[in-house]
């Protein structure tokens, strides 16, 4: 794996990785990919893809409002709130 790929994955995953660390991660990830290559070699043509390990189907709930407003409680754990909004560092422009 190229170090540039490591940089891109880090960006997508919002991970701060120092350029100096990239070669190290590239090497480790390459080893993981080798293992995946090995798994890819298994013939799965006749195997149905598994969406979930449990052989069950989704239960549905009735369309009813059951949750009351707990904004005050939830906002106690937020670093910054104003007028009911959660505040985050400005995300555009």
């Amino acid at each position: 794996m190229e170090t540039s790929t490591v940089t891109r994955i880090a960006e997508l995953a919002k991970l701060a990785i120092a350029p100096a660390e990239c070669p190290h991660y590239a090497e480790e990830l390459t080893q993981i990919l080798a293992m995946i290559e090995q798994m890819n070699a298994v013939d799965t043509a006749a195997v149905t893809p598994l969406a979930h390990p449990l052989q069950l189907t989704q239960r549905l709930r009735a369309d009813q409002v059951t949750e009351l407003d707990q904004r005050e409680l939830f906002q106690q754990s937020a670093p910054l709130t104003r007028e009911g909004f959660y505040l985050v560092p400005r995300v555009i422009e």
Partner: peptide
């Protein structure tokens, strides 16, 4: 704002989604 956002909507740890019929 945020008066109709419950623990599931906020993505708090440990919550599970249940599909609306």
């Amino acid at each position: 704002p945020n008066t109709q956002a419950c623990a599931i909507d906020l993505g708090l740890p440990g919550v599970l989604p249940v599909l609306n019929a």
